[in-house]
């Protein structure tokens, strides 16, 4: 019996190690490339540990002639504003869907979910025309607006599950005490879903932080480009600066990794709840 338990433990560790290798391998490759000088980047045979590790790639990413810092600010700006707007909109709508009964609610909610069914490429041509007519091409606003197309439905859906998790009795008591629906919502429920709001914001931030297609299509000026598009600056007409590219990529990943580290628990709760009750 003890022997069986022991082999069981060993198997678990074996699987855990295999899982870790599978998950981490691409990251290790990226880090390795980002620490290599050009003459070590493509060798035969290839190797992981740089012989003469260097931080030059990271310095060059922020160096003269590089717009990386600007892209970083742009991404931060666009993702934060989008997140705030989505949160502002979703907070009301998700409460409405979670708590209040009104005719057509189910149909409208299905409509909301329906918007997840098509690829963003399907609406990009009309959106481009709309942006063009409004003279919004090449503005931050074009990105923020287009990001609402996918982040509002997700935000509402996710936040709704957090509202569903709040016991109904609390509001009902407040309503009986003479609060209006809005007061009950604002004073009683909102404080209770704060963690959910954090998780929803983080998820929306994560979606908008890495958005690529709209950013590629709507922005022209270098000074307004966001990171996912901007890192392709290191891909030239003939040659790619892989060292710089990978250094920049790692820097792009860090903020979302940090955010996820902190909100993972809430987010997972919201996603599973939302999925099952949605």
């Amino acid at each position: 019996m003890i022997k069986r338990q022991k082999t069981g433990k060993i198997t678990i560790y074996l699987f855990a190690v295999l899982l870790a290798i599978f998950v981490l391998f691409p990251f290790v490759v990226m880090i390795s490339m980002s620490l290599k000088a050009p003459d070590e980047q493509f060798t035969s045979p290839p190797y992981l540990i740089p012989k003469r590790p260097t931080l030059n790639n990271y310095l060059q990413v922020f160096g003269q002639g590089s717009m990386f810092a600007q892209y970083f600010i742009n991404s931060l700006l666009v993702a934060s504003i989008s997140t705030l707007i989505v949160l502002g909109v979703a907070i009301f709508s998700s409460y409405g869907y979670a708590r209040i009964n009104f005719p057509g609610k189910n149909i409208l909610f299905v409509l909301l979910l329906l918007s997840q069914l098509f690829p963003l490429a399907a609406i990009i041509v009309p959106l481009y025309r709309i942006m063009g007519n409004l003279k919004l091409i090449d503005t931050y606003l074009s990105l923020i607006i287009s990001y609402l197309t996918f982040s509002v439905p997700v935000g509402v859906w996710l936040l709704r599950s957090f509202f569903l998790g709040v016991p109904r009795e609390l509001e009902e008591a407040a309503l009986i005490d003479g609060c209006t629906r809005f007061q009950a919502f604002w004073r009683i429920v909102i404080p209770l879903v704060r963690p959910g709001m954090g998780a929803t914001s983080a998820y929306v931030f994560f979606l908008t932080w890495q958005e690529f297609m709209f950013a590629l299509t709507f922005i022209n000026s270098e000074s307004k480009r966001t990171l996912p598009v901007g890192i392709f600056d290191f891909v030239g007409q003939y040659e790619t600066n892989w060292g710089n590219l990978m250094a920049a990529s790692i820097l792009v990943c860090i903020p979302v990794f940090v955010i996820f580290f902190f909100i993972q628990k809430q987010l997972v709760g919201g996603l599973t709840e939302g999925a099952i009750k949605g």
Binding site: G88, V89, A90, F92, S93, Y95, G96, Y97, I100, N101, F102, P103, K105, L108, L111, L112, S115, I123, L127, I145, S146, L148, T149, V152, P153, V156, R181, F182, F185
Partner: peptide
């Protein structure tokens, strides 16, 4: 109750209709 329901979901509904 209905009216307040519509009021709550209105912002997202408008965005959805216009943008999606």
């Amino acid at each position: 109750e209905w009216i307040s329901g519509y009021f709550f979901i209105l912002p997202s509904l408008i965005l959805l209709i216009v943008l999606v």
